[in-house]
């Protein structure tokens, strides 16, 4: 497992980061689905232009945590949130927050690729059209750039107006990532983006994620610890809705502080 680490990289202390290097500041966040407490007092500072992975056993609240950053949890009936999440120095849970605008700045990619059953092109410009952009050339350029970013341009340049459903699973997943980054968001939330893919497609997407870091703050949920180790700079370990440990990826995987973390990453977790 240690092969995956770039041990030459100096470890970063999260507490030492300045406020302007922080993309998301989560303060005492708790979330309830009806009577079930899904997140408990989460406190977390997610650095800008870095890749942060979220790991933990199934049902521990990883997707729910991600859904707090673009307020997609709001769509679930009976969902109740306490605490604050600051993005760009604004509490996104403030009652005057424009949720649709927030979601255009915080992109999300789901566990299963969910392209719209329309053309590839329509998928790419969907978010831009919602933003009111009508200029054909702007849309074309944005679509092309997004496809190039996810290394899909060469594969689909001749079939932009075919249905997105004709793409393979891996291509679809890259398409929905492209769809999200076409909006040039500040933050990209990836919920198990490779869980439905074969090893080759997984590699392509992992490479893509490491490149995305140059422009975006990336949060990635994964069940695959090698993947977390390979791609991320920081790692958070969640267990039953609580944030057990959160630190530099190298440190978390080599010298975990908590026993629960160690049990989980060494596979001894029941």
């Amino acid at each position: 497992m240690f092969d995956y680490f770039d041990l030459s990289r100096p470890e970063v202390d999260l507490d030492g980061l300045a406020d302007e290097d922080i993309a998301i500041d989560v303060r005492d966040l708790s979330l309830k689905f009806g009577s079930k407490l899904a997140l408990k007092d989460i406190r977390m500072r997610i650095p800008k232009r870095q890749i942060t992975s979220v790991i933990g056993p199934s049902g521990c609240g990883k997707s729910t945590l991600l859904g707090c950053f673009n307020r997609l949890n709001d769509l679930t009936p009976g969902c109740e949130v306490q605490g604050e999440v600051y993005i760009n120095e604004r509490n996104i849970y403030h009652r005057k927050e424009d949720v649709a605008a927030l979601r255009s700045r915080v992109g999300m990619v789901f566990q299963r690729p969910n392209p719209f059953p329309m053309s590839i092109y329509e998928n790419l410009v969907y978010g831009l059209k919602i933003q009111g952009i009508r200029d054909r050339r702007t849309l074309d350029n944005a679509a092309e750039q997004a496809l190039r970013d996810v290394a899909l341009w060469k594969e689909v340049r001749d079939r932009l107006f075919d249905s997105a459903l004709t793409l393979s699973g891996g291509q679809q997943q890259r398409l929905v990532i492209a769809r999200a980054i076409a909006l040039q968001p500040d933050i990209l939330l990836l919920d198990e983006p490779t869980s439905a893919l074969d090893p080759i497609s997984t590699l392509t997407i992992e490479e893509l994620i490491t490149q995305l870091k140059e422009k975006y703050t990336v949060l990635i949920v994964t069940h695959n610890m090698q993947q977390a180790a390979r791609v991320s700079d920081f790692t958070a370990f969640l267990h039953q809705g609580s944030l057990i440990e959160y630190s530099d990826t190298n440190r978390l995987f080599t010298r975990p502080k908590q026993q629960q973390t160690e049990e989980y990453i060494t596979g001894r977790y029941g």
Binding site: N70, L72, L75, A100, R103, Y126, G127, I130, R179
Partner: peptide, 20 residues
């Protein structure tokens, strides 16, 4: 999943219903 995909791209409920 398609409704969520639309919301996640910044669509309001009306836009989601109308466009997707």
């Amino acid at each position: 999943s398609l409704r969520q995909g639309s919301y996640a791209l910044g669509a309001t409920q009306f836009e989601t219903v109308w466009r997707t």
